[in-house]
Simulated assay, not measured.
Amino acid sequence: MINFNEPIDRMGTYSTQWDFMADRFGASNILPFSISDMDLAIPNELVTIMKKRLEHPILGYSRWNHPEYLEAITHWYRQRFEVEIEPEWLSYSPSVMYSLSKCIELLSQEQDEILLFTPAYNAFFDCITMNRRKVLCSNLILENQQYTIDWSDFEEKCRQAKIILLCNPHNPVGRVWQEWELIKIIEIGKKNNCYIISDDIHMDIILEGTFYPLLKAKNYQHNIILLSSISKSFNVPALTGSYVIIPNEQLRKSFQVITRYRDFVNSPAVLNVLATIKAYQIGNEWLSELLDHIKRNLEIVTHFLKANIPEIKLIKPEGCYFAWLDCSELKISSEKLQTLLITIGKVGIMSGRTYGQTGENFLRLNIACSDIKLIDGLNRLKITVEYIKAQKKRGENHG
């Protein structure tokens, strides 16, 4: 059994989350739960294969378009999700967000509208606007502690949209879209001549339910693009590298022309290629233990909030490794709460406002860490809430 609770010091490793926390929170003396990587060791098999490669004294240009790499990915989809991916549908990309940016460029014109469900991963907004397209939001509905799609709003806005941008599982709220929901999205998109781009980078982090890749709906492959990577599942974003699945041959060739002949990002980091092959060969057992650990951490959050901070409600995630926390009962703005978390609690938790207006009064807590760190962070959140309550009581007594 893997000990995911073993403390690992990440300071001094050029870690975005730890060494550069001041860039995000304005302070460096806090405990961070911010960017979506894990404070957990990667599989030993990945370390071994990368060490072996680094024993060779030459790190020249590498390739991705070979059977070992392509078959590793198609094998993973076949055995884990029961879907057949043709090897020729695959292309390499330096990152999922790069792939998204290029697909937006290829499939739409400036000022076209890109539809997404909100609250949404904050980089989506930047990717759309920096490509001179318009963000079109369909707000998810929160009912009975679960987010659902407002179908009438979604269908109406699809009439305006050129592209539907999905996130599955949905970051930050943790919904794993069910098969019927995805098929309905596909049907509505087809009726309105929308392309569908699905960011599936968290596809292996499923806590409840079943992940359903859009390409299982075989009748609609022509207008669907899937984006993914091993970076979230196996905690290797520093290796860079991702892949894009494009069944549409013309679109795929256009994408490859851009990556190879215009942007010159078609030569991959060899360690990413090796890690992808190995992870998709051996990863099921490691992922099973990882998911058990995340579920235990989620139970810690659930029990801690009920016992210590009942004003904060957990919106239980079905996927991803985030706890989406409803802080609306605190009656304090997201901006003020962030300030107090940093100055009073000495803890860095992502403000829900980062993910759009519908994230106001929420926090996104990364729980992919040791239980020791998680409990420390929750205690710091408790200290902050107790301060807020004390300040309000003091104000009432002086009112």
Rank of each mutant, 00 (worst) to 15 (best):
E113F: 10
I85D: 00
S101P: 08
P119A: 02
W64G: 03
E105D: 14
P57C: 14
N131T: 11
N131C: 11
T74G: 04
L90E: 01
I49E: 05
E86R: 03
V83P: 05
Q109R: 13
G60P: 02
S62I: 06
S99M: 11
Y121V: 11
Y69E: 03
E71Y: 07
I49N: 04
K51M: 07
E110Q: 14
L106T: 10
E55W: 11
Y98K: 09
K52N: 08
E86P: 03
I104S: 02
K51L: 06
P67C: 10
L140M: 15
R133M: 05
P87W: 04
C127G: 13
R63Y: 15
E88N: 05
E84S: 15
T48H: 07
H75P: 03
I104C: 02
V83W: 04
P67E: 03
T74Y: 00
S62M: 05
W64K: 01
F117Q: 07
W64Q: 03
K51N: 08
K52V: 09
K134H: 09
L116T: 08
S101C: 12
S99Q: 09
I128D: 02
N139Q: 12
L70F: 03
K102A: 10
W76A: 01
L106C: 09
S95D: 05
Y69H: 06
Y77R: 05
C103R: 06
K102I: 12
I49M: 04
E143C: 10
S101G: 14
W76I: 04
Y61N: 12
L90Q: 03
L100K: 12
C103N: 10
Y69Q: 02
S99I: 10
L106Y: 05
S62P: 01
F124R: 01
T48D: 07
F81E: 05
P119R: 01
T118Y: 01
S108V: 06
P87H: 01
